[in-house]
């Protein structure tokens, strides 16, 4: 909320239709460290990342601590979440071998989910997954894991089959191989990271601009007149609708990130594709 209020100070609706900053970067970059630990700057984003990790740890710990045979609501919910990733994603996509990648996929899912949920959490309102650092590092981890899994499983043939694909006419092999190489080793991690990043950036921008505009038009309705005030309230209502829509996006993007990580690992583990 703070960024809304801060931004609203500079917004003049008599001049603008929507409160948009001169540069969208303003909505995302908070690089002034609050304090430093051993020279490492603790900025707002860094703090939120550790907060997300702490929330995931707390959910895991308090959800599974009691190990009750007949679970309570919270324990059942956490178990359902874990079981979903194991059965639907790890084993469902990768197959019986998928249980080895289950911890990694589960960690990704929970971390991204909580990071996404910061977008609509009151008083935070900032998805840490909209900073490229998080999607990029997780996508890089997935990249390393699926290449390592492929090489471990198939040896050198893994790379060779991609560069010189069997079952393709010989004169097309260099072309297909090049496309496959780019698609597997460059586009995959890139699109994995950017998909999450772009969805959250777009959501955050829309929410911030529309809700700020609504807020500003409500507080300055005397200056901007009834017509513009009505517009402002319409913007605000649209913002609320998008707020609800973002709940879907948040869960879906966390799921898709995990699902695609699993799919990429699967294509390395099971070569018969």
């Amino acid at each position: 909320m703070e960024q809304l209020i801060l931004a609203s100070g500079e917004c003049d609706l008599t001049q603008q239709t929507v409160c948009a900053p001169a540069d969208v970067t303003e909505l995302f970059e908070y690089r002034i460290p609050v304090f430093e630990i051993l020279g490492f700057p603790i900025t707002r984003t860094v703090f939120l990342m550790f907060l997300a990790a702490a929330i995931v740890a707390a959910i895991t710990f308090f959800g599974l601590r009691r190990k009750a045979v007949v679970p309570g609501r919270f324990q059942a919910a956490v178990e359902a979440l874990f079981g979903f990733v194991r059965d639907e994603v790890a084993i469902g996509i990768i197959g019986p071998h998928g249980i080895r990648y289950y911890p990694y996929l589960l960690a990704i899912f929970l971390f991204v989910l909580v990071g996404n949920f910061f977008e609509i959490t009151p008083f935070v309102n900032f998805p840490i997954t909209s900073r490229m650092a998080l999607p990029a590092s997780l996508a890089a981890l997935t990249w390393v894991i699926f290449i390592a899994a492929g090489i471990k499983r198939q040896g050198v043939r893994y790379v060779a089959d991609i560069l010189w694909p069997p079952g393709v006419p010989v004169f097309l092999r260099p072309l297909v191989g090049a496309i496959e190489f780019v698609s597997t080793f460059l586009v995959r991690p890139f699109s994995l990271a950017v998909r999450l990043f772009a969805n959250l950036v777009a959501g955050h921008v829309m929410l911030t601009l529309l809700l700020t505009t609504g807020l500003v038009s409500l507080t300055t309705i005397g200056e901007i007149g009834a017509l513009k005030g009505a517009f402002g309230i319409a913007w605000w209502a649209l913002g609320l609708a998008i707020f609800l829509f973002e709940v879907v996006v948040i869960v879906l993007q966390a799921y898709i990130f995990t699902l695609l990580s699993a799919v990429y690992i699967e294509t390395s583990v099971n070569p018969a594709h």
């Binding site: 700057p41 900025t43 990342m49 550790f50 740890a57 599974l64 960690a107 997780l138």
Partner: peptide, 28 residues
Amino acid sequence: LLLPVPEELIAGLIAFGIVFAVVWKFGI
């Protein structure tokens, strides 16, 4: 906006490491 910031990259990896450790060593 597209380029990862060093301190966030490090913090993100550490935070993910914490999550992974908790999930792997305790949760599962």
